[in-house]
Design a protein around this nucleic acid. Structure first.
Length: 549
RNA sequence: GGUCCAUUCGUCUAUCGGUUAGGACGACAGAUUUUCAUUCUGUAAAGAGCAGUUCGAUUCUGCUAUGGACUACCA
C-alpha cells in the first residue's frame, strides 16, 4: 500500500528542546523532505504538572533557526502565511488541533471505545495504594496476574463502579493486556523485535484527575487520526513499541499502523548514560540549540546559537551522529542530507557526543563564509568592545575589516574569537606579554626600535602601503609556495637597514611586533603595518619604548 | 531484579565472507612560517571474549562479558 509519507515531531513542552530532540526532529524532517511528505509538529502536553511556560515558543524558534521547516501543526501557521507574526505557535492543518491538551473530546470518544469493546477498564487504586503494593510485593506489576485483586471495574460490581464515579472518586482507565502473547514490532532500523505481552503492564491510558490521556493513548490516537505514516523517535521508546502495537490492534487500526524507526541515543561524552540536560553545564558545552531561560527556576542554559555556532554546522554535526552514508563525505548541506539520508543507514548503537568534532564543523563553515559576510558579523563584535572604559582607538574601513577577517579566519572556530586574535588592529596594546618579552625583547631592542623610528619616518605616506612581490625563494618540495608578497618599505627600506647594521632580522622584527601587538603573535608584520598605517605604527613603537625602557 | 536493544582506533564512522580493516575529530612528531596560528607530511591507534558454520570470518549463528534503554496516574 503506497501512502503519503507523513512524519511528526512530538515534543512535550517541559523545558528547552535538547540536542537529542533536535536530531530526532532533523531525521524526521530529512525523511519527510526526501519523500515529498509532510512534517508535522505536535505538542504533547498531557502532563499538566510538568508544563513549562515558553517551552513551545522555544521549540519553534529553535527549529526555525536550524532550518527545520514545519508543514503542519504547531508553528506551521507562520510559514503557511508566508510571513512572521507574533503568533509563533499558530496552528495550521486540517487534522488539528495539534496540541494534545486541546484534544480532550477526541480522546474521550476513543477511551470510550476501548472501554466498550472490553480492551480497557476503570481502576480506582490510588497512587498511594499502588506505592504500598510495590513496596510489599517485589516486582509488582499491574497486569493479568494481579488485576483481579485490585480495585477496578473487573473486580467490582458495575453499580459500585458507577456509584464511585458519580461520587467524583478519581480513577484511571487501564489498558487490558492479554497475557502470553508474542507481540512483533517491525523496526526499520532494528528489524523485528519480539516481546511477550506478559511483561507489559496494564498501562494507564487516561486519568480523571486532569481529564487527560497519557502519552500512550494520545500518541496512538493522534498518529492514527493525523495519518502519520512513519514514527521516527528515540530508542527510549522501543520498550513501549509493543504496547503501541497492541493499542493499534485494539482499535482495529493495525492495517494502517505507521512504520516504526527507533533512533540510537546520544550518549554522554564521558562516563555512561544518555546525554542529559545537565551535562551541558557539567562539561562546559551547550546541549540546547538556543539559550534557555527557565521562567520557573530562573536558570539560564547556554545554547549553540549564542555560543556562536552556525546552524549549518549544528545540522551537519548532528546528522552525522548516528547516520553515515557509504564513503568518506563529511560536509553536507541540508539539501545534500535530504538527498542522501536513509533510515537503513542509521546506526544501531548509541553515539557519544563529541563536542570537539562539533567545533571542527563550525570552523569549516566559518571558513566557507564570504569574507565580507564575516566582516559584517565581526563588526558587531568589534562594536561591543568599543566601551567608554576602553574605546577603540583605531578604526578600520569596511575593506580593511574584510581583509583582516580573511587573514584571521583560519585561526578561529567562532567569529567572536576573532577579537581575541586581532584586537590589536583596533586598540594599541595596554600591556606586553611577559613570555614574549622574555623571549623577544632583548637588551638592545630599545636602541633598535629607536633607530627603526628614524628609518620609518623616511617612508612617505604614499609609499607606506605599496605592495610588492619580492623575488620568491625557489619553491622546494617542503615549501612549494614561498611567501611572495610584502610591503615595499619593509623590503626596500627596513630590510636593507637591518642588513647594513648587521642586526638579526628575527631580533628586530620580533621586537617591532611586540611594539605593535603586545605579544609574539598575529599575522605577517607587513599586514599589520599596512592596516595600522604610518602614524599609528610609529605611535605604538614610541609607546612601547616609553613603557618598556 | 526483569525485558528489550547494542558492541570496528580515545570519539564519530566505512566495510554489506577474501582489504596492508579506509576516512574524519582528537593526540603525537617533523617540515614550513623572521612571531603565533595556519598549512603540509607523517606516526600511534580498532574488529569485546569464546565456540560454531565455512576453503576462508570484522561481516552469519550461539553463548559469555560489557554498555545502554525501559520497568510511573512522565514523556
Amino acid at each position: 500500500m503506497e501512502r503519503k509519507v507523513r512524519v511528526r515531531f512530538a515534543p512535550s513542552p517541559t523545558g528547552a528542546l535538547h540536542i537529542g530532540g533536535v536530531r530526532t526532529a532533523l531525521y524526521n524532517y530529512l525523511f519527510a523532505r526526501q519523500h515529498g511528505g509532510d512534517m508535522i509538529l505536535r505538542i504533547e502536553d498531557t502532563d499538566s504538572t510538568r508544563f513549562v511556560p515558553g517551552a513551545e515558543e522555544y521549540i519553534i524558534e529553535a527549529l526555525q533557526w536550524l532550518g527545520i521547516e514545519i508543514d503542519e501543526g504547531i508553528g506551521a501557521w507562520n510559514r503557511q502565511q508566508g510571513r512572521l507574526t507574533k503568533d509563533l505557535c499558530g496552528q495550521y492543518g486540517d487534522k488539528g488541533p495539534y496540541r494534545q491538551s486541546e484534544r480532550r473530546a477526541i480522546y474521550h470518544t476513543y477511551v470510550r471505545q476501548l472501554l466498550d469493546s472490553g480492551h480497557a477498564y476503570i481502576a480506582f487504586d490510588t497512587p498511594e495504594e499502588l506505592e504500598r503494593k510495590r513496596e510489599e510485593v517485589k516486582n509488582f506489576q499491574y497486569d493479568a496476574s494481579t488485576r483481579m485483586s485490585m480495585r477496578n471495574s473487573l473486580t467490582m460490581p458495575a453499580d459500585e463502579v458507577q456509584r464511585l464515579m458519580d461520587a467524583g472518586e478519581q480513577y484511571v482507565v487501564r489498558f487490558l493486556v492479554q497475557p502470553n502473547e508474542e507481540v512483533h514490532v517491525n523496526d526499520l532500523i532494528r528489524g523485528e523485535v519480539v516481546i511477550n505481552s506478559n511483561i507489559i503492564d496494564d498501562k494507564v491510558l487516561y486519568k480523571s484527575a486532569d481529564d487527560l490521556p497519557t502519552y500512550h493513548l494520545a500518541n496512538i490516537v493522534d498518529d492514527h487520526l493525523m495519518e502519520v505514516s512513519h514514527v521516527i523517535r528515540g530508542e527510549e521508546w522501543l520498550p513501549s513499541a509493543p504496547l503501541h502495537v497492541l493499542l493499534y490492534r485494539a482499535f482495529g487500526w493495525e492495517q494502517s499502523m505507521p512504520r516504526f524507526a527507533h533512533l540510537p541515543l546520544l550518549l554522554k561524552p564521558d562516563g555512561n548514560g544518555k546525554l542529559s540536560k545537565r551535562d551541558g553545564d557539567r562539561l562546559g558545552f551547550p546541549v540546547f540549540p538556543l539559550e534557555f531561560h527557565d521562567q520557573k527556576t530562573g536558570a539560564v542554559s547556554s545554547g549553540y546559537r549564542e555560543s556562536g555556532y552556525y546552524p549549518e554546522a549544528v545540522i551537519n554535526f548532528l546528522a552525522l551522529l548516528g547516520w553515515h552514508d557509504t564513503g568518506d563525505k563529511e560536509m553536507y548541506t541540508m539539501d545534500e542530507l535530504i538527498r542522501d539520508f536513509s533510515l537503513d543507514r542509521v546506526s544501531k548503537a548509541g553515539a557519544k557526543f563529541d563536542y570537539e568534532k562539533g567545533k571542527w564543523f563550525n570552523h569549516q563553515y566559518l571558513m566557507l563564509r564570504d569574507d565580507a559576510d564575516l566582516a559584517r558579523e565581526f563588526a558587531s563584535v568589534v562594536a561591543a568592545h568599543d566601551t567608554p572604559e576602553s574605546p577603540i582607538t583605531h578604526r578600520l574601513t569596511e575593506a580593511q575589516l574584510t581583509h583582516v577577517v580573511g587573514l584571521m579566519k583560519e585561526r578561529v572556530t567562532f567569529v567572536s574569537e576573532l577579537w581575541e586574535q586581532c584586537s590589536f588592529f583596533f586598540k594599541a596594546p595596554e600591556e606586553y606579554d611577559d613570555k614574549s618579552l622574555r623571549k623577544r625583547w632583548k637588551e638592545e631592542s630599545p636602541r633598535h626600535m629607536q633607530e627603526l623610528i628614524g628609518v620609518l619616518e623616511q617612508v612617505s605616506e604614499e609609499d607606506w602601503s605599496r605592495r610588492v612581490v619580492v623575488p620568491a625563494a625557489e619553491p622546494t618540495a617542503e615549501n612549494p609556495d614561498p611567501q611572495p608578497t610584502t610591503t615595499w618599505f619593509i623590503d626596500t627600506v627596513v630590510m636593507p637597514w637591518i642588513a647594513e647594521q648587521g642586526y638579526g632580522v628575527g631580533l628586530v622584527m620580533n621586537a617591532f611586533r611586540i611594539c605593535l601587538v603586545g605579544a609574539a603573535r598575529g599575522p605577517h608584520i607587513w599586514e599589520i603595518t599596512d592596516i595600522l598605517g604610518k602614524t599609528e605604527t610609529l605611535n605604538r613603537v614610541r609607546q612601547a619604548l616609553d613603557r618598556l625602557r
